[in-house]
Simulated scan of single mutants.
Amino acid sequence: MIERWATALLRIALVVLFGILVVFQTLSLPGQFRYLAEQNPEDAALRWPATAITVFWVLCVQVVIVATWRLLTLVQKDRIFTEASLGWVDAIVWAVAAGWLVLIAVLLWVGFQADDPGLPMLLFLATAVVTVVGLVLIVMRALLRQATALRTDMDAVI
């Protein structure tokens, strides 16, 4: 019973988060970088690259949200230990990997340009967190693959 409540609450949270991310993607981030370009004309050339990168990261999170929604559907239908679930987990892993690669590029660019260690250290922290999340996802995917194989074997026996 508690799983049903948790699943329902998670779905509500995913919808709210997705909606907030759409607002950020379409209004807040572009507006913020426009404002920063107006306030600091010497950094105006960074407006569009910064907008594109942050919108891309939001898109990566949106992919994770959609894939999580689909995995919840598979859980509800008791089909989580099937090949269908692996495709959605792969989507999450690839979205995290794509975001991580762009984060590494930003870290390197900022690291070589910065005269203050604050932002590079923050980006390094974010990179470490995303690295750990990505590696945990890869391990969890391997566990899901093993559980799926065991479930397939058990279904064949029964």
Rank of each mutant, 00 (worst) to 15 (best):
M1V: 03
I2C: 10
E3S: 04
W5R: 03
W5D: 00
G19C: 07
I20T: 04
L21R: 11
T26I: 09
L27Q: 11
L27F: 03
S28P: 05
R34K: 08
Y35C: 07
E38T: 10
E38P: 05
P41W: 09
A45Q: 13
L46P: 15
T54S: 06
V55Q: 10
W57F: 01
V58K: 08
C60I: 05
T68W: 01
L72M: 01
L72T: 01
L72C: 02
L74T: 02
K77P: 04
R79D: 03
F81L: 15
W94F: 14
A95L: 09
A98D: 00
G99V: 06
A105R: 04
L108K: 15
W109R: 15
W109P: 03
W109L: 15
V110K: 11
V110R: 13
G111Y: 10
A114R: 08
G118W: 09
L122V: 03
L123F: 11
L125S: 11
L125H: 15
L125P: 05
T127H: 03
T127Y: 04
T127E: 12
V130W: 13
G134P: 08
L135H: 10
I138D: 15
I138G: 04
R145L: 14
R145W: 01
T148R: 09
T148K: 02
R151Q: 08
T152F: 05
D155T: 06
